[in-house]
Design a protein around this nucleic acid. Structure first.
Lengths: 346, 346
DNA sequence: GCGCGTTACTAACGCGCGTTAGTGGATGTG
DNA sequence: CACATCCACTAACGCGCGTTAGTAACGCGC
């Protein structure tokens, strides 16, 4: 196991010479299964030479000869929005399972940066491409992406030609609202996002469905749309709490808005998880975990989406011209302490 | 500029045939400068054929022939601690400037995951390695890393054999404290981290130096060590505020602890940025930006450290056996609104 | 007409490896 | 003893490209 510190790279031929066989034999031992008629003893000698010399296959040469790089490309704006980094994690893990290596590049989302990143990946002959965004939206990839199987993660193709993996926003909104209903609330505020984006549409739909199912009438005065940031959550919460018939629970479409809502609530002397309940969305750890009390919220299944994306890509690469399909991944509720316990009488 | 959607890959030979010259000529046109005696007209025809056929050089083949991959490897636990993702961003930008591509892999920090990641990079024949951590500490890389130039970012080699880029924690602690002194404070609490880790040592050193320089005596009762999380920041702030002679300003060694301190301060009816000032450390955007009032804090220069790491690597790769050197990068103060304005009378 | 320097290319090798088609020897079969 | 099988291997090609050494054609001076 001598690791041959910084010398000329040892090749397969070196191993062959060392053992006294041909390079072909070494190749068979290292790649072929037990199928080739090579006796155990020779195999052992080869393996020993490999570790003695510190031989390491050259991925580039191997790719050239075998015509498969075992590379998948992952392009993402994650670096800009780090909280979605688990997409990368999930993708990497799944790639490892498939025996692939991920080539990761970041983009600022501009189509120019996208194109350059894709170009680089294609030069490296990736066998497939994953494009992941930090927020759920429609995208349109540069034409070059069509040269290779592509899967979108946390976004979808506006031309609906590409496969994609997206979160089930509606189900997320539903479980969040149901959690509050289950705790005995029947006046539940919704601080939502800009109502044209997919996240807002879905989360609201889930909210509405939960209310309906519980036989609670939808009160539009309890729904406020904002842009997702903390100070807007604060403003919206103030509006709700200072209204004529304030809610006893608030579902915030982002944890950041929940953070702002917390301030408004505390200012009014109310105790969260007691006098009033709050549920967030995003499971942004730094916020949800460290708010006082910690925030019950709905998680975007980043890791799972990343893994699913890679798995889909593997299928797609094996069988091109598969009809574009959209995989929807569930958003689990993450229980913490901002929702009061269910009580007998509301 | 037809992009040849998913057909057999076009090679340099195809371009040559299309133009009616040899492959060598094409290679000269694409790689060589204007040095080779190839007339403008031929060059044009080659370039046109390239874009007509959608030719794209094969990075693997090119690496094989030229014996340089132009790949740098970046190994990081960033995915675990996304707030440090700017290291990746800085590294990528600098790599692009150097004409290199980054091969990124994540690790959970276990030496086993490290080794596997490094192994993969070496198979791809990276020309150098960057190892970045999410928190400032000493590390010990697996022996395989010695086969290739390596630079550590946000960490240092316990055996002091490897180059590294680390943040100037002491200077960071200094500017933070100076900012508070400049605002007229002379009783300044420090909620620090576990005093054995580099971040805590440095930040405290900076704090002490600033006090000394201002002629303020160090009061150990104003210094509390905790583990960095919000609830501990809360506890520590309570202890400080409820003491006999409470501070009028608090320097928190993490933004998360500042977040907890905010709660303690607000509970006591004090107004941050007015009755009392707070400075954090880390510039963790989700927190610092959205706390109310927003948090003045010290930033870890992740992006710059990433870029510096790559730049050092480039130098190192050009000139191996350079004495291991340690580059220290300044931590800038990020001004927000949690420090009161300087007043005439303290 | 001959030697010589340019100009504009090309033939051919090798990078490290996967893979196909074979080869020489040992063993079994009739 | 001729012949077919297996066993254990090897020669050789080609993947796409960079690069070195060389060549053919042309113009120029003498």
């Amino acid at each position: 196991m001598e690791t041959n510190p910084r010398q000329a790279k040892v090749t397969m031929q070196d191993v062959a010479n060392h053992v006294g066989v041909s390079r072909t034999t070494v190749s068979f031992v290292l790649n072929g299964g037990t199928g080739n008629g090579i006796p155990e003893e020779t195999r052992d000698r080869v393996h020993q030479a490999v570790s003695e010399l510190g031989y390491r296959p050259n991925a580039g040469a191997r790719a050239l000869a075998s015509k498969q790089t075992k590379l998948y490309g992952l392009i993402t704006e994650i670096v800009i929005a780090p909280y979605a980094a688990n997409i990368v994690r999930g993708a990497e893990e799944q790639a490892a399972r498939e025996g692939k290596t991920l080539l990761i590049a970041s983009t600022d989302g501009s189509s120019d940066a996208d194109r350059r990143a894709i170009e680089t990946m294609l030069e490296h002959r990736v066998e497939g491409l994953i494009y992941a965004t930090s927020w759920h939206r429609g995208v349109r990839l540069p034409a070059v992406a069509e040269e290779v199987p592509t899967v979108l993660v946390h976004c979808f193709d506006e031309a609906t030609k590409l496969h994609s993996v997206i979160p089930d926003e509606a189900q997320g909104g539903y479980v969040a609202t149901m959690r509050l209903i289950g705790a005995g609330h029947d006046r539940i505020g919704l601080i939502n996002l800009d109502p044209v984006i997919p996240a807002a549409i879905g989360r609201r739909a889930g909210y509405v469905r939960a209310l309906e199912q519980a036989g609670i009438g939808l009160d539009e005065s309890l729904v406020i749309n904002e842009d997702g940031e903390a100070d807007q959550g604060y403003r919206a919460a103030v509006a709700l709490l200072d209204g004529s018939r304030p809610p006893t629970a608030i579902f915030c479409a982002t944890d950041r808005m929940a953070m702002g809502a917390y301030d408004a609530i505390k200012e009014r002397g109310l105790r969260i998880g007691d006098d009033i309940s709050v549920v967030g969305f995003d499971n942004q750890e730094v916020i949800a975990n460290y708010l006082r009390p910690s925030l019950t919220t709905v998680a975007l299944p980043f890791q799972q989406m990343g893994a699913t994306g890679v798995a889909m890509l593997a299928k797609l690469a094996a069988n091109r011209d598969l009809a574009p399909l959209q995989r929807i991944v569930e958003c689990p509720l993450v229980e913490r302490t901002s929702v009061r316990l269910p009580v007998a009488a509301s």
